[in-house]
Design a protein around this nucleic acid. Sequence first.
RNA 1: UCCGGAGUAGCUCAAUGGCAGAGCGGGUGGCUGUUAACCACUAGGUUGGGGGUUCGAGCCCCUCCUCCGGAGCCA
Length: 431
Amino acid sequence: MNFVNVKDVKNFNGQEVTFRGWIYNLRTSGKIWFLLLRDGTGLIQGVVSKNDTTEEIFNKKDILTQETSVTVTGLIHEDRRSPGGFELIVKDIIIHQIAVDYPIALKDHGVEFLMENRHLWIRSRKQWAVLRIRHTVYYAITEYLNENNFFRFDSPILTPNACEGTTTLFQVPYFDLGYAYLSQSGQLYLETGIMSLGRVYDFGPVFRAEKSKTRKHLTEFWMMDAEAAFVEHAENMQIQEELIRFVIRKVLDKNLSELEILERDVEKLRKADAPFGKMTHHDAVDLLRSKGSEINYQDDLGAQDEFLLTEHSDVPIFIEKWPKEIKAFYMKRDPENPNLVLGDDLIAPEGFGEIIGGSQREDDHDILLQRMQAENMPIQDYQWFLDMRKYGSVPHSGFGVGLERLVTWMSGVQHIRETIPFPRTIYRIQP
RNA sequence: UCCGGAGUAGCUCAAUGGCAGAGCGGGUGGCUGUUAACCACUAGGUUGGGGGUUCGAGCCCCUCCUCCGGAGCCA
């Protein structure tokens, strides 16, 4: 048999082919009936008419159900009336297994019901489309990095100590050594990698036990952390911008039909592939206060602030040079103003919020040590990290991209939980 | 954790303190071009758990549970 993927259907016009997949929907109309078949690569409509087939095949309409697995053979032909422009004149249907009482109808469902049935919900068209965009984004990021001399450097997931505050760590028993913690970021390890490979990245799941309950948070999410030697603040932002614009172009190139399924405004993505905005934290606060926000110059941006900053912008905006008090200990002080650090956040337009956090790192041993002592960090646990500033320290920078945040923005979905196959949130770990 | 909201048929939702209903899905029948098809008939209920007020509670009160939205923190 000539097994074919639905996505390749246009190459088989007029030929007899066989698809393997699942029944997405069934419509009967007397002496003719239609089935929608999905095979993972796409959807195609099959037509079965009484006059053109055997009674045995025609009567399969009485036993087929939504999500029944089948092998379907037939003749491809072009037809405007069919979704996708091609349809299959069915000659034979082999049933693998009949799905009984599939719970997810092609109708509205509540979030709780869909989350309980996440293992089935991923078969639905919109979820399918989002997961395909996730795939594109994932590979676009690695492609950009691989082509720009970054080496994959896998940092550990079980770690002895925290990169950030300990209240947000997941703790696991670790033999006779007490406890280990699930990694929140591979950044500190990546910083060691650049002294070997020059430019490195890791890409994997990270874990944050934050009790965040918003549409932008997961407790387990995928992050790409990149780190580069001899790269300073301005170049760091330039790399981030090139990377994100590369991802936008890849998604527009590969996922137009998925974006259409999701009813994403593609023009907004096209416009975002242009030079990004840039302002200092101080200027951002000025702007926000002029718009009525009560934010202060020592404050982090809130969700409303991120929206206000980007509401009239087609492109993402960098917020750079932050007050050192609200940023992590490892960020390098601004040589022009010791109260600031050379950090940058990249905020996506349309209210999708922060998608990147990055900074030039503090490369001076004594300044870094001071900063760590001021934050009461257990210095002995971080001796290896301080070592890098003793044995050939160099200026260096890095950043972390939240994969699901980026996919949320690209696909335009309203909640981050739809951008990962099995979301982990504060109140849900099933299925 | 805080603030707000919701739990009624498999699903989405109605129901002035007074007989618990509709659409979808299921079943049966009809229809040769359907697009989440349509039409007719039909089955389907411990109204989240516990307690209370009342002649009478899905509806009011207390409590617990579950979920949703938002905030803070962050990617």
